[in-house]
Simulated assay, not measured.
Amino acid sequence: MKTLCNSLKILGDPPNDDMPINAGLLFFNEAPERFFESARIELTIMPDPAGDGMIEYEFKGPLDIQIDRAIGFIRSNVIACMTLKHDDTPVADRICNYPLRAVEEAVVNAVYHKDYTSPEPTRITVRPDRIVIQNVPGPDRSISDADISGFNMASTRYRNVRIGDLLKYRGLAEKRCTGIPNMVRSMRGNDSPDPILETDAERSFFRVTLMINPVFVRKKGQICIDMQNNSDISLENRILALLQANPSLSMRELLNALGYYRNASNVYAMVRSMVSEGTIEYTIPDKIRSGNQRIRLRNTE
């Protein structure tokens, strides 16, 4: 095991060569938040500026798993695409409210460059007309404000070098300062507005805002595909989202998270249907009514 850890370069230097470095704890540990309070992604769906109908999710676990689950949630519950046909050509255009590649680059960038000694988690906020991804701190001061506004985020100083290496091994990052350019290229390729990059004079945060494609906005300024809220988002998708954010849940935990306190027969029926379809599974399949019974996403590997 030590030989494997050494090959992954996740152990300290002598005399601490039997102790994992921070990147090792963040990637090869089921609960890195035990060591780093902010090692999580908080995702909030906010259909109303006042917070009415707000739904909050947390994604924990190894950093690469957090990224996979958060992006998977956005892919399943936020991103929508449409096909536009034209009278003068048989070729149709396919566009999305948000290009998935841009979302992936923004989320990976935030997790990669975050300060894990800070108590602030990586935050993703989904509003009716935008997705906002924020991490702390902001860009290194060697990157000027003009560089930021010009999407030129190349730096000679790298934060979290080993985290970047491990993300690269997982195929989630390239470590060539390509994240922001890829994000911009993806937004422009989808005919979406350029991403908005923000920080402050102290470089205490970095915020990326991806605006919705204008085609998805009605003439009256309303969102073409309305933001899903707690009452109209499909029950199946809500259950899947909760299980993406949690390794397993008891029925009581699931009902509480869904906001059901009575008349929950539809939830039980949905869970049975999803088990039958193979989407999810019981942890104790031979004893369905066991007091220790839990449900989880089905392992398809």
Score class of each variant (00 low, 15 high):
I74T: 06
D52C: 07
I55H: 00
F28M: 06
R75C: 07
D68N: 14
Y57G: 00
F27A: 04
E33C: 11
L25M: 10
P15T: 10
E30G: 14
M54E: 11
R34E: 13
M54C: 07
F73S: 06
G61R: 03
A31Y: 15
N16L: 15
D48K: 13
E56F: 07
L25E: 04
R69P: 05
E37F: 12
F59A: 04
L26R: 00
G53M: 06
P47N: 10
D52W: 05
S76Q: 15
T44V: 11
P49G: 02
A50W: 11
F35H: 13
P15F: 09
P62L: 05
E42P: 00
I55T: 07
L43G: 00
P62C: 08
N16W: 15
T44I: 10
P15W: 10
A50F: 14
E58P: 03
T44K: 05
M46K: 13
D52H: 08
D18V: 11
P14D: 13
D17G: 13
A39K: 00
P32M: 09
F36Q: 06
I21S: 05
F59P: 01
D18S: 14
N22D: 14
D68T: 13
P15A: 11
L63M: 13
L26H: 01
D52G: 08
I21C: 06
R75L: 08
D48E: 14
Q66D: 12
D13G: 12
A70Y: 00
P49R: 03
R34A: 10
F73M: 12
Y57N: 01
F35C: 06
R75N: 12
I71P: 00
A70Q: 01
P32S: 09
F36T: 03
P20L: 14
G72L: 08
R69K: 15
L25R: 07
G24M: 04
F28E: 04
A39T: 00
G51W: 04
G61C: 09
P32Q: 09
R69G: 06
I21P: 00
D68W: 11
D48N: 15
L63W: 04
G53D: 06
D64S: 14
A70H: 01
D48G: 07
A31K: 15
G61Q: 05
I21K: 02
I67V: 11
D48A: 09
K60Y: 11
R34I: 07
P49I: 01
P32F: 08
P62M: 08
L26G: 02
G72F: 07
A31Q: 14
F36D: 05
M19F: 12
M19A: 14
P20K: 12
A39D: 00
A50Y: 13
F59M: 06
I74W: 02
E56Y: 08
M19K: 15
D17N: 15
Q66V: 11
F35R: 07
G61W: 03
G53R: 03
D17S: 15
P62T: 07
P15R: 09
M46Y: 01
Y57M: 02
L25H: 09
M54Q: 08
A23N: 01
F27V: 03
D64Y: 09
I71Y: 00
L63S: 05
D68K: 14
L26K: 02
I67N: 04
L43Q: 02
M54N: 04
A23F: 02
D64L: 05
I21R: 04
M46G: 02
T44M: 03
R75M: 09
R40Q: 09
K60R: 15
D64A: 14
D68I: 12
E33Q: 14
I45Y: 01
D13K: 15
T44R: 05
D48T: 10
